[in-house]
Design a protein around this nucleic acid. Structure first.
Lengths: 117, 117
DNA sequence: CGAACAGTACGATACAGATCGAACATTGGA
DNA sequence: TCCAATGTTCGATCTGTATCGTACTGTTCG
């Protein structure tokens, strides 16, 4: 086995993508891959992010992200390298990756606008 | 009580928005509001969408969407009208609303690209 | 060969959140 | 005034899924 299944980007639906990104761990993984910029292996991601989950859990999340069309996996000897599918995702869902890059509220947090529920 | 609390759009994070949109019922509600275009009440949304959930459940989903900054609620006599916060959402997360409008895979579904996991 | 390493597969468990029903609040109209 | 319609709140379930641990596969290197 040398290649890993990934869906063609045209077949990916926003519904599945949203479900994949709704989990805080997976969002952390995606952001770490984005920061890394190129091929990274799972154990390095755990080191970089400081996320403390078992490796079977990580494997599960990676699969969800891959099935959602967000990342690509490549076998490299003893490890599996992965990377964001920048071009595909940007083409299919323009603006999405950019949204994920912001981690803080946009401004100095005005408070809620209207009153009394 | 005449107004309903909604967060200032700058304070809304993509994390919360993704969680809100990850639920299939809420995604249906948002799409229905988008299609409707203007102020719509809860029971009308249920009729339009055919979604069969209790009204307490609907109330819960509405609250999640409102807290996520996606919709605005206005009291009108016996009912509560709501609408998408088009301008705010488009400004804060450009491209997001547009992504939700597509319900089908983009093309005639090529199959998976690589082979053997 | 055998040990260490990276990752997957699978069954079991735990927890978050979706759902429901009942009680209550508010408004408008008969 | 009383009733019907819309919606909220609260407590109790029920379910999906994130998590873990173990066993297993495949690879590199001594």
């Amino acid at each position: 086995m040398t290649e890993v299944i990934e869906p063609a980007i045209e077949t990916v639906t926003i519904d599945v993508v949203l479900s994949a990104l709704a989990d805080p761990v997976r969002l952390t993984l995606v952001r770490a891959l984005d920061t890394a910029g190129d091929w990274t292996c799972g154990s390095d991601i755990l080191k970089n992010t400081g996320v403390t989950i078992g490796k079977s859990t990580l494997s599960h999340h990676i699969k969800v992200l891959r099935d959602a069309g967000l990342i690509r996996t490549r076998v490299d000897g003893i490890r599996r390298l992965m990377t964001l599918r920048y071009g595909d995702v940007d083409q299919r869902f323009p603006g999405l990756l950019n949204m994920l890059r912001e981690r803080e509220p946009a401004r100095a947090a005005e408070k809620a606008s209207a009153s009394t529920a």
